[in-house]
Amino acid sequence: MITLGHYLVVSGMLFALGLAGVIARRNIIIVYMCLEMMLSAANLALVGFSRFHLANGLPDYTAQSLVFFTITVAAAEVAVGLAIIVALFRSKQSVDVESVTKLQG
């Protein structure tokens, strides 16, 4: 018997994996991928709540609209972020997060 809790735990574990990757990895591109994973984990929780909170016998489509907006924003964010990574690579010849320490003083 699959309950809402199962979906929430999978969503939480995916988010935690992404968080660990963002903290531990040093390759900026992989950090970006982990960020995407965290956004998707939040989407899974939203869709789960939408299915299990019925409004008039139908899933709650407000939550799925929010997922739609999240996916759109994530796509825009990836495009801009990758352009920044390319610009960074041009000036530093590296995608290591520790090669960018100009603001450290």
């Binding site: 809790g5 929430l8 735990v9 988010f15 935690a16 994996l17 968080l19 660990a20 903290i23 531990a24």
Partner: peptide
């Protein structure tokens, strides 16, 4: 960074499991 990343992830997972339960 790796140790703190794993620690945070495990803590977060345990917390979510506790809340969901």
């Amino acid at each position: 960074a790796i140790v703190s990343g794993i620690l945070l992830a495990v803590l977060l997972t345990l917390q979510i499991i506790a809340v969901v339960g």
